[in-house]
């Protein structure tokens, strides 16, 4: 936000975008692997998690 306090470390806009986009990419990769990937091993391991989170399963 625009109101930055003196004690906080400011990320430059560029750094913030790099951090944000890397977080989005890694996060999407992890969620895809646990929730959506079409692999029998991944499916069986994450089976109860997939159902509990309401990921489309089976």
């Amino acid at each position: 936000m625009a109101t930055s306090t003196a004690s906080s470390i400011s990320l430059s806009l560029n750094d913030r975008l790099v951090a944000g986009i890397s977080a989005l990419l890694i996060g999407a990769f992890l969620v895809f692997g646990a929730g959506l990937a079409n692999s029998a091993v991944l499916h069986d391991t994450a089976h109860d998690t997939r159902h509990s989170y309401g990921f489309p399963c089976h």
């Binding site: 990320l11 913030r16 975008l17 951090a19 944000g20 986009i21 890397s22 977080a23 989005l24 990419l25 890694i26 996060g27 999407a28 990769f29 992890l30 969620v31 895809f32 692997g33 646990a34 929730g35």
Partner: peptide, 11 residues
């Protein structure tokens, strides 16, 4: 994964 996505959106 969800935490990184949330942080990513926020950043």
């Amino acid at each position: 994964g969800f935490s990184l996505l949330l942080a990513g959106v926020s950043l």
